[in-house]
Computed example of a mutant assay.
Amino acid sequence: MWLKTLATSPLSAITVVVLFIALLLRFYIKFDTPQRLFSAEELALFNGTDEGLPILLGILGSVFDVTKGKSHYGSGGGYNHFAGRDASRAFVSGNFTGDGLTDSLRGLSSTEVKSIVEWRDFYYKTYKYVGKLVGRYYDSHGNPTKYLKGVEAKAARGAQLLEKQKIEEAKQPACNSRWSQDEGGEVWCDVGYPRLVQRPLEIALTGKMSKRCACFEDSQLGQAGLELYEGCDYYATRCKVQS
């Protein structure tokens, strides 16, 4: 009887349609609504000082809800300086004050940029992704900017260089090493003789030239660029390392 009434009543039919649309919208909003866009001013409201709001942080323009880590990101927590802002640079610089809390990566090396991208990946895996911060990394439509694309390309380049360096250095065995407060440092080779050698890819990776200890056989000791440890005999297999 009620079905017949429903079918012949315009008002009832409209009610059913409205309820159906409401249910669809509820389902859509819950599962398919894209994450929201934040301005810097809006994001700053979610810095952990308001108990009624979630705690959010940005990294490379991606915004995450870190409320479940409230003990760390909330007011007084050790990582509260990240809350309510995008402080991407601080993830590798360790500068958590003033100008150090910035999303600018200017001047960072490819390995440092790669590390920040890996931090972003960590947040994707560990916390809830809730949206994008409009500004340096995303435009007002939520599209990635040239800056973000450049950052990701630099990080990828850093990963390639690290892999290349790893392959090259595997061709020349590394020294064994140890250090203690009482005895200082020591390097040694089970086969061959310890020498310091420059890491040619390090400038591209870190912006600095560094050296590593590798073991060279007698026939290789005449190569250019090999440096004997100070105070160590030419054919010594063990050398003390200055601290």
Rank of each mutant, 00 (worst) to 15 (best):
M1A: 14
L3N: 07
K4D: 12
L6M: 09
T8Y: 00
S9K: 08
P10W: 11
I14D: 00
V17K: 10
V17F: 12
L24I: 13
R26H: 09
T33Q: 15
L37D: 04
S39C: 04
S39H: 04
E42D: 14
L45V: 14
F46C: 11
F46N: 07
N47D: 15
T49F: 01
T49D: 11
D50G: 08
G52W: 01
L53V: 04
I55R: 02
L57W: 03
I59Y: 10
S62P: 00
F64Y: 15
D65W: 04
D65A: 11
V66L: 05
K68V: 05
G69T: 07
K70N: 05
K70A: 11
S71P: 00
G74L: 10
G76K: 14
G78Q: 11
Y79S: 08
H81L: 09
F82S: 01
A83D: 02
G84E: 03
D86K: 13
D86G: 07
R89H: 11
F91H: 15
V92L: 07
S93Y: 03
S93Q: 06
S93V: 04
G94C: 10
G94Y: 02
F96Y: 13
T97L: 07
T97F: 05
T97Q: 12
G100K: 13
D103E: 15
S104A: 09
L105A: 06
L105D: 01
L108D: 01
S110L: 15
E112R: 14
V113W: 05
V117D: 01
V117F: 00
E118D: 13
W119C: 02
F122R: 12
K125S: 12
K125R: 13
T126F: 06
Y127V: 04
Y129L: 07
V130A: 05
V130T: 11
R136C: 00
Y137E: 05
Y138D: 02
H141V: 04
P144Q: 00
T145Y: 08
L148Y: 07
L148V: 09
G150H: 06
K154A: 14
A155D: 07
A156V: 06
A159G: 08
L161H: 02
K166G: 05
I167P: 00
I167A: 15
Q172C: 04
A174D: 13
A174E: 13
S177K: 13
W179L: 06
S180D: 08
S180C: 05
D182N: 10
D182W: 03
E186M: 13
D190S: 15
V191N: 11
P194L: 02
P200M: 14
T206N: 06
T206A: 08
G207V: 10
K208R: 14
M209K: 15
R212E: 08
C213H: 04
F216L: 11
S219H: 11
Q220Y: 01
L221D: 05
G222H: 09
Q223C: 01
A224S: 14
L226C: 06
L226S: 06
D233M: 02
Y234E: 14
T237A: 14
T237Y: 02
K240T: 13
K240E: 11
V241A: 08
S243P: 15
S243V: 11
